[in-house]
């Protein structure tokens, strides 16, 4: 069997982490291709249902990443996102999802190098965890 390649869905905020991802690209840094980036205007708009949907559709990991404290373009969206992620980290493990599969990071617009590192580390960790249980199930 071929090596397990995880699918990771990443919600990046437009102002910081997405810009950092852009910077990583223009700086010709590489990061694992497993990560599918979805650009959102702010991590504060990542409704828990987006994360739940990603997991139920078979994502092996979900990464939410926004601005550092104090840098949020909308003042406090990143803090609100932290509460939602905390909430999900409480709910999802109850149903057998390893809470390590859901992560929140804060990456500033100028941190292209840091972003590439984070992506590599996260992809590595998810690979080690193995495939998510949803992949082959009938449920959606």
């Amino acid at each position: 069997m071929s090596e397990f390649e995880p699918t990771i869905v990443a919600f990046f905020c437009n102002w910081c982490t997405y810009t950092a991802a852009d910077l990583a690209g223009t700086s010709r840094l590489s990061y694992p291709h497993n990560i599918r980036i979805i650009r959102v205007m702010c991590t504060g708009m990542v409704d828990p249902q987006y994360v739940i949907k990603a997991f139920l559709e078979g994502a092996d990991g979900v990464l939410v990443s926004g601005c550092r404290p104090g840098d949020c373009h909308y003042i406090n969206g990143n803090y609100k996102a932290r509460r939602r992620i905390k909430l999900l980290k409480e709910i999802l493990p109850q149903f057998g999802f390893d809470q390590q599969r859901l992560r929140l990071t804060w990456i500033g617009a100028s941190d292209g190098i840091h972003l590439a590192e984070i992506m590599r580390t996260f992809a590595g960790q998810i690979k080690a965890l193995g495939p998510s249980q949803t992949k082959l199930k009938m449920v959606i």
């Binding site: 803090y79 932290r82 992620i85 905390k86 980290k89 990071t105 804060w106």
Partner: peptide
């Protein structure tokens, strides 16, 4: 929210 809560869930080591 509070500024200094749930710090342990942010970041990837």
């Amino acid at each position: 929210f509070r500024e200094d809560e749930f710090k342990e869930i942010v970041g990837i080591e």
